[in-house]
């Protein structure tokens, strides 16, 4: 009997939770704020679903309700992607070590 593909996705999901668990525990507490902003940015990979929705249909029906929701989701996710990565970059650039001179 064949295995339903959902089982494979479920396996990926469960294993990723464990990976996340160990990776996040190793994050230094001083970087918890950048951690939140970067997780924010990467969870906006949901934009792939939005793009599929936006590109669906032919040019005659491009302003279907379903496409419009797709476009809106694209805009929201794009705010998050650019905002999230850039603000993380900005924060991380501020973390400096003690200067060795003196």
């Amino acid at each position: 009997m064949e295995i339903d593909p959902i089982i494979f996705r479920l396996s990926i999901f469960i294993l990723s939770i464990f990976v996340g668990y160990y990776v996040v525990w190793s994050v230094t507490p001083s970087l918890h704020t950048p951690l939140m902003s970067v997780t924010n940015a990467i969870s906006s990979v949901i934009i792939v679903g939005a793009i599929i929705a936006g590109l669906s249909g032919n040019s005659g029906s491009i302003f279907n309700t379903s496409n419009i929701f797709g476009f809106l989701a694209i805009a929201l996710a794009a705010i998050n992607i650019f905002g999230g990565f850039l603000v993380t970059q900005r924060m991380l650039a501020m973390y400096k070590k003690k200067k060795k001179d003196k």
Partner: peptide
């Protein structure tokens, strides 16, 4: 999306 969701969720 599944991997990311799990990572962010557990984080």
């Amino acid at each position: 999306l599944i991997i990311t969701g799990a990572l962010v969720g557990s984080s």
